[in-house]
């Protein structure tokens, strides 16, 4: 099994403050991997480092073997930011086509793909509405659709389920599974244990470090508990002991 993402011992500083310290991780292709950690753990920083937006001082990141930052790596990645980054005055379709064309999708192809994705995310009926009239859930869905416009092999989703209702959360989960089944790798961040539970693998992060990595069951077994939350707490204690 090849690696979608290889993170090798990276340090990330924002300004002078060190945010990530010696982070290493591998994300296998075709898996849904959750980056789990409390707010302020450095999840978004790691995601941005993956996208080439944050400078990496030490170590190296590779996406499908391509060193980050590079345009090749970017073209294989679909990205959904923590906040919906949408053009509110434009319609959903316009947003999709625009981002699609930035990713190099030809206009005609972009349109049909946009229609497809609108159907996929259940926005087909509202495709011509300006985004400012969308609810926050619809915006999340549109953001997901945008991230899929370039038919990425790797989806990087920063807190995709924040602020959405449980029903939509379930729909998202289904969609993630469908996308994985299409052969895509999904790397998402969350601070909700529950959500991580349904992933193939979980990276536990705290204070800029990865403190544990494994499937939810492995992590729970390692900690001798049957809840991911307890496992998380266990690994926190372990990491503190190490320190």
């Amino acid at each position: 099994m090849s690696e979608a993402v290889e993170i090798e011992n990276i340090d990330v500083r924002l300004g002078k403050a060190p945010i990530l310290r010696g982070v290493s991780a591998r994300i296998h292709e075709g898996r849904i991997v959750a980056l789990l950690g409390p707010s302020g753990a450095g999840k978004t920083t790691l995601v941005k480092a993956l996208m080439g937006m944050n400078p990496v001082c030490n170590g190296e990141i590779r996406v499908f073997g391509k060193k980050v930052p590079s345009f090749e790596a970017l073209s294989m990645v679909g990205y959904m930011a923590q906040n919906d980054a949408l053009y509110e005055d434009l319609s959903a379709l316009d947003n999709l086509v625009f981002f699609g064309s930035l990713c190099g999708v030809k206009e005609k192809a972009a349109k049909s793909r946009a229609e497809e994705l609108l159907e996929f995310t259940g926005l087909g009926a509202d495709k011509s509405k300006p985004v400012k009239k969308y609810s926050s859930g619809m915006k999340r869905r549109l953001s997901l659709a945008i991230s899929l416009m370039n038919d990425p092999k790797l989806l990087i989703l920063d807190e995709p389920t924040v602020g959405i209702d449980p029903l939509l959360r379930i729909r998202f989960r289904e969609q993630f599974l469908r996308l994985r089944n299409q052969g895509r790798t999904i790397f998402l961040t969350t601070h909700v244990m529950d959500e991580a539970q349904n992933c193939d693998a979980v990276l536990l992060m705290r204070e800029g470090r990865i403190i544990a990595y494994g499937s939810p069951s492995e992590l729970m077994a390692g900690a001798g508990t049957d809840s991911l939350e307890d496992a998380f707490l266990y690994h926190i204690g372990l990491s503190e002991k190490e320190a």
């Binding site: 090749e72 970017l74 930011a81 980054a85 949408l86 981002f99 930035l102």
Partner: peptide, 14 residues
């Protein structure tokens, strides 16, 4: 502010 710039920069645009 809206993050669209960042989002645009997440695509392979120069």
């Amino acid at each position: 502010i809206s993050g669209t710039l960042e989002r645009v920069l997440a695509t392979p645009i120069r």
